[in-house]
Design a protein around this nucleic acid. Structure first.
Length: 949
RNA sequence: AGGACCAUAGCUCAGUUGGUUAGAGCGCCACGUUGACAUCGUGGAGGUCGGCGGUUCAAAUCCGCCUGGUCCUACCA
């Protein structure tokens, strides 16, 4: 083995090997265990969130694979409609100076496919770097032929059941992207804005009770005035009761619009009158429906003012009787220009009563960054009510469990207040809606044009045109768990691996994706898509900030693995920015945080860091310090293995017929191994990867390396030690290490494999020359029979004495190597035997050349003293000791004991404590009190002796 | 406005059903290259567990209120 741990070569080498040996595919035997990867965007690249998520999934899959399950980790990518289309549009704009319209639909889509071919492999290559043991042979894409089939099938069947319908509805419209987007893609941002109070003159000479000739309405969006079709007052509002049924004359437009009574109007807000614009506001749309008001759309798809408005009833039928004319001066104005102009015009007319500054929230499209406009458009919808019910029940009755459980509430809250799902998008990239129209506008839904003709008996010569729109990306990814397994065909994979075992996902897409998957999957397979949902938090930077390009705090997982030079990192963070003015600050912050750039850490260390920070459900602040620490851990494991190999390779590791003798230390470490195995397994079962990684770390570093390896040295290096004892120690060294590697493998696949190849033959788990992989070895199973409490207590005693002596050396400034004598007072009955069994270890590890019992404490020489439980370790002072230092140390120790004694005495003198606390608790306190008092007595005696010197 | 989650050492975090001398890693201080490892070893300093109140013999842990933070949902005509 190389002297230093160098992850980069190990990692790529092993991944290629595993993949070539086809070790990721399902074994075909054992209980099925499957995970469907949340498909990353096909043109995306791996970010910290992916890396975190993939680590968790891979850890689960590798663990279950080792447990003997028939594991499938299904891989694939998502076509990601809007994101991908925008990316390619930007690319061709930059490279060719063309828009997608210049190219036309077909040519543009060809371009997207081209781009997919070119860059689609990027993220999957990065996934390999993370060590993800996905079954590449089954890789899917949400727009491949199979998915096309599944999507058509689902759409047509839902339509046949009238669960998909088409209608003219108010939707969130993105004026930049020219498409409807879902509520979930809308981001609400707080803004400072104005609230304009306008006067709307009453028509026909009517006046208010106070004699005014107008009503006052207020709005933050004056431009929508053009589309007002009513003014609402509260039915309970006495001020306006007499005006209900009368009219106002809409300023600037001149339309007569009714005053209606509707509970939407809040008497306590403003004047109590509300302008109603059913075609441009979601609340007003509902008021319009209730009051039978017409819908007047005044905007184009760019959210500019139309020349002539469009009037509809609530069913979306055109209303030819309404005068659609709008004042010509606004035609073509963008909504914000129109706003300014209209406010100015109202003011000129004396109709602007006041302008109030308010803070309000505005909806922004999360992709375009443009302000979203509610717009009346023709769209396709899924009626979700009947789909939601079973989806709610599946979680209620435990068929699907969320981990952590509190996300179930979030799910219920959303599912119980679900709006119909708008599934059409006015994009080109995506699954085109399988609906055809004839010249009269009749709609035919079918799996293909041919089927549409056949189904509806349409003559071949009747021209049909397919719907221009595509489906929401989440419509296809909602079919992910079963679509990837071959549905609508009833494939063996579907039978074996569905429902999947667990979905690993971020809380941010519970609504987008998880809820829809549950609905769609239950509907079409009658099964839940997954039995458990493990929800993880967001990966943030060390300060708890969201990582974003604009903040310049993005870390690339690959850079953490391979390392990156400072200059490259700065360039990466500041290049190609939307807001170049921030570059300077980002450069400065980056140089301050990473003065030397980022060192290579390797994939295993990164994975281990993620796992150690994966506490359920909350966001993680990525900690570079821990990454360094776990890279060191890999190095520790590496070097410990070197030690083991140096002592075991070419030696008898006790596999043959020769007698083997196990020392106390051997029995102790084997015992602790069993407990660690049980601990790690349990943590994995509970998705507590932080506990699993912690248990492994502790065992490897603090017990196996710090103590067991040290304890093995005297045995292996002592000329006089018996051959059987050496064999026993070698066998234990090797076997425990081999088990550690298997335990570590799901978390740290590369280093564990690399070392295991050398260690396994020595441990007898891999025949010499055999071609095996740790990936397919059994997961360590704790054996109750090997747990040895006696050995644990004995080793704890030994450690206590050694630490006490080291402590005295440090405090007294005695060189670590200087041989010392020690005296022990008799503590527990077993201690005599313990001393006998451990003389060798004490002499080597504590550098004690003589250890004796002190039979009569009265006869104790002047000594430095340290407590080990009830026992006292004395190192006779002779010329070694600084009197003042030792006195101070004893005084401090005495004070500590007294404080403890005081606390317990207080408890025990409390009658209610003695009366009400369980007997065992009281006894325990009494026991502690006795111990502390004994310790204090010994310390005080020593103190007095030294003081008298 | 409603709801969720969080607050433990300088930093990042553990802490099962209330009973622990409240832990780990990083950082810090001192000492140390003895034959796995300076990406290391040994020893040490550092916490009134956000605040107040309650339940209890006993609270970091359970309850209420408050403060601070993160996020979600809704509203803002």
């Amino acid at each position: 083995m190389d002297k230093t741990y160098q992850p980069e070569q190990i990692e790529t080498r092993w991944y290629e090997r595993w993949e070539a040996d086809n070790r990721f595919a399902p074994s075909g035997s054992g209980e099925p265990y499957s995970i469907m990867i949340p498909p990353p965007n096909v043109t995306g690249s791996l970010h910290m969130g992916h890396a975190f998520q993939d680590t968790i999934m891979d850890t689960l899959i590798r663990w279950r694979r080792m447990q003997g399950h028939n594991t499938l980790w299904q891989i694939g990518t998502d076509h990601a409609g809007i994101a991908t289309q925008m990316l390619v549009e930007r690319k061709i704009a930059a490279e060719e100076g063309k828009s997608r319209h210049d190219l036309g639909r077909e040519a543009f889509i060809d371009k997207v496919w081209e781009w997919k071919q070119e860059s689609g492999g990027h993220i999957t290559r990065q996934l390999r770097r993370m060590g993800a043991s996905v079954d590449w042979s089954r890789e899917r894409f949400t727009m491949d032929d199979g998915f096309y089939q599944a999507v058509q099938e689902v759409f047509v069947r839902l339509h046949e059941e009238e669960l998909i319908y088409r209608g003219k509805r108010l939707v969130n419209w993105d004026p930049t992207l020219h498409t409807a987007i879902s509520d979930l893609e809308v981001e609400n941002r707080d803004q400072q804005g104005s609230f304009w109070h306008f006067r709307y003159p009453l028509a026909d000479g009517v006046t208010t009770d106070e004699g005014r000739d107008h009503l006052v309405v207020a709005t933050t969006r004056p431009e929508t005035l053009l589309g007002d079709t009513g003014v609402a007052v509260n039915p309970e509002d006495p001020r306006y009761a007499s005006l209900v049924g009368k009219f106002v004359e809409l300023p600037l437009v001149g339309r007569r619009i009714p005053i209606v009574a509707d509970e939407h109007a809040d008497m306590d807000k403003g004047s109590g009158c509300v302008k109603i614009t059913p075609a441009h506001d979601f609340n007003d749309y509902e008021v319009g429906r209730r009051q039978g008001l017409p819908l007047i759309n005044v905007f184009t798809q760019d959210a500019a003012v139309l020349e002539r408005a469009e009037a509809f009833d609530i069913q979306g039928r055109a209303l030819p009787d309404i005068d659609p004319s709008l004042p010509g001066k606004y035609a073509g104005l963008d909504r914000f220009e129109a706003r300014t102009t209209i406010v100015a015009d109202m003011e000129a007319l004396g109709l602007l009563e006041q302008v109030e500054a308010v803070s309000n929230t505005l909806p922004y499209g999360d992709r375009s960054g443009d302000v979203i406009e509610p717009l009346l458009t023709d769209q396709w919808f899924v009626a979700v009510e009947s789909l939601a019910r079973p989806a709610i029940e599946a979680v209620e009755n435990g068929d699907i469990q969320f981990v952590p459980k509190n996300y179930e509430n979030m799910y219920f809250a959303w599912m119980r207040d679900l709006q119909d799902w708008c599934i059409s998008r006015q994009l080109w990239w995506g699954h085109r809606i399988p609906a055809w129209y004839d010249a009269d506008g009749n709609v035919y839904v079918a799996r293909s044009e041919a089927e549409a003709r056949e189904k509806h008996g349409l003559p071949a010569e009747l021209p049909l045109t397919q719907d221009e729109d595509v489906l929401d990306t989440w419509f296809s990814s909602g079919l992910w768990t079963f679509g990837t397994l071959g549905w609508p065909e009833q494939t063996p994979e579907l039978a074996t691996f569905h429902p999947s075992s667990v979905l690993v996902t971020g809380f941010d897409i519970i609504f987008f994706w998880v809820a829809r998957m549950i609905m769609m999957t239950l509907k079409f397979t009658g099964e839940v898509p997954f039995k458990q949902v493990y929800v993880h938090g967001l990966v943030r930077d060390g300060q708890g900030q969201k990582m974003s390009k604009s903040k310049g705090n993005v870390l690339d997982p690959i850079d953490l693995i391979d390392g990156i030079a400072l200059e490259t990192l700065v360039e990466k963070r500041t290049g190609n920015m939307m807001q170049p003015q921030k570059a300077k600050a980002i450069t400065k912050a980056t140089r301050a945080e990473f003065p030397e750039g980022i060192e290579p850490h390797g994939t295993d260390a990164l994975r281990f860091t993620f796992l150690s920070q994966a506490t359920t459900g909350r966001d993680i602040k990525f900690d570079m310090g821990r990454l360094d620490g776990y890279r060191n851990f890999c190095n520790k494991l590496w070097n410990a293995s070197r030690y083991v190999l140096m002592n075991a390779e070419g030696e008898d590791t006790g596999l043959g017929e020769e007698p083997v003798e196990l020392s106390l230390a051997d029995r102790w470490i084997v015992s602790r191994l069993q407990q660690t195995e049980a601990q790690v397994t349990r943590a994995m079962e509970e998705f507590r990867f932080d506990h699993a990684s912690q248990a492994l770390y502790d065992f490897v570093w603090n017990e196996y390396c710090d103590w067991y390896l040290e304890l093995s040295k005297p045995v292996l290096w002592d000329e006089g030690a018996r051959a059987a004892a050496k064999r026993g120690t070698r066998r234990t060294l090797v076997r425990v290490l081999e088990a550690i590697l298997r335990l570590a493998h799901p978390m740290m696949p590369f280093i564990s494999e690399e070392i295991w190849q050398r260690v396994a033959p020595l441990a007898g788990t891999l025949a010499m020359g055999e071609d095996g992989s740790i990936m397919n070895q059994p997961w360590p199973l704790a054996e109750e029979a090997l747990i040895d409490d006696r050995a644990t207590r004995d080793i704890e005693w030994l450690k206590g004495v050694i630490v006490a002596v080291r402590n005295i050396r440090a405090e007294m400034n005695i060189a670590p190597g200087k041989p010392l004598e020690a005296l022990l007072t008799k503590g527990r009955p077993d201690d005599a035997e313990r001393l006998k069994a451990n003389r060798l270890f004490l002499s080597k590890l504590a550098k004690l050349e003589r250890v004796e019992w002190l039979d009569d404490p009265e006869q104790a020489p002047l000594s430095a003293t340290q407590l080990v439980g009830e026992m006292e370790v004395l190192v006779p002072m002779a010329d070694l000791i600084d009197k003042d230092v030792e006195l101070a140390r004893l005084a401090k120790e005495i004070e500590k004991q007294e404080k403890l004694i005081g606390g317990i005495e207080k408890k025990l003198s409390n009658e209610s404590f003695v009366a009400k606390a369980p007997e065992a608790v009281v006894e325990k306190e009494r026991g502690k009190l006795a111990d502390f008092e004994a310790s204090r007595r010994l310390l005080v005696e020593q103190h007095e002796k030294i003081e008298a010197l």
